Amino acid sequence: MKRRKPCHFTYTWILIFICLLICGVKCEYKDIVFLLDSSGSISPGNFEEVVDFVSNVTSWLTIGPNETLVSVVTYASNVTEHFSLATYTSSSDAISAIQSLKSITPEGGTYTHLALNYSYEHSFGVRNGSSKAVVVLTDGRSVSRTETEKAADDLRSMEVEVYAVGVRSDLSLTDLDLQVIANDPDSYYITYVDDFVYLCNVVPGIVSKLDASAVANSVQGCPEMPTTTSSSKVTEEATTTTDSTTTTTIDASTTGMAILSSNRRISHRVQ
Rank of each mutant, 00 (worst) to 15 (best):
Y198C: 10
S142H: 13
I181E: 01
T62P: 00
K5Q: 04
C27L: 03
I32M: 03
R265D: 09
V57D: 00
L260P: 11
E121C: 12
G256T: 15
I266V: 12
N117A: 02
S218G: 06
V134G: 15
E67L: 04
S244T: 05
E237C: 11
P44Y: 11
P65T: 04
I16C: 04
L101A: 04
G40I: 06
T245S: 02
N66Q: 14
G140R: 13
F34M: 09
A76Q: 09
P6Y: 01
S230F: 13
V135C: 10
V79A: 05
D184N: 12
E48S: 11
S39W: 13
D211G: 04
T235K: 03
L260D: 14
L21H: 08
F196K: 06
D211I: 02
Y189F: 08
T110R: 08
L36S: 08
R145Y: 11
N263K: 13
L173N: 07
E236P: 04
L61Q: 00
S144V: 05
R265M: 14
L35Y: 15
V167C: 10
D37P: 08
K30Y: 08
T174S: 07
V54A: 02
S130F: 05
R3K: 08
G108Q: 03
V143I: 12
T74C: 02
I206L: 08
V136F: 14
R264C: 08
Y192H: 09
T228D: 12
L15F: 09
S84K: 00
D195W: 11
E147F: 14
G129D: 12
P106D: 07
F196T: 15
D177E: 13
G108T: 07
S244W: 04
V25K: 01
P65G: 04
T68V: 06
M257E: 09
G24Q: 02
T138G: 11
T146V: 07
Y111H: 05
K2D: 02
D184T: 08
T191I: 13
S123V: 03
L21W: 12
R145Q: 05
E161H: 15
F196M: 13
M225H: 06
S100C: 07
V165H: 09
I181Y: 01
V167P: 05
V25L: 03
N128Y: 14
L171R: 09
D186T: 07
T105P: 15
L210M: 05
N66V: 10
G64I: 00
A76R: 03
P185Y: 12
P223C: 03
C222D: 03
T254L: 07
G125P: 11
I32P: 06
I266A: 09
R4Q: 05
T62L: 02
W13S: 12
C19I: 00
S91R: 09
K2S: 02
Y111M: 11
L178C: 01
D194H: 04
S231A: 11
S262C: 06
L15A: 14
S208M: 09
T235H: 03
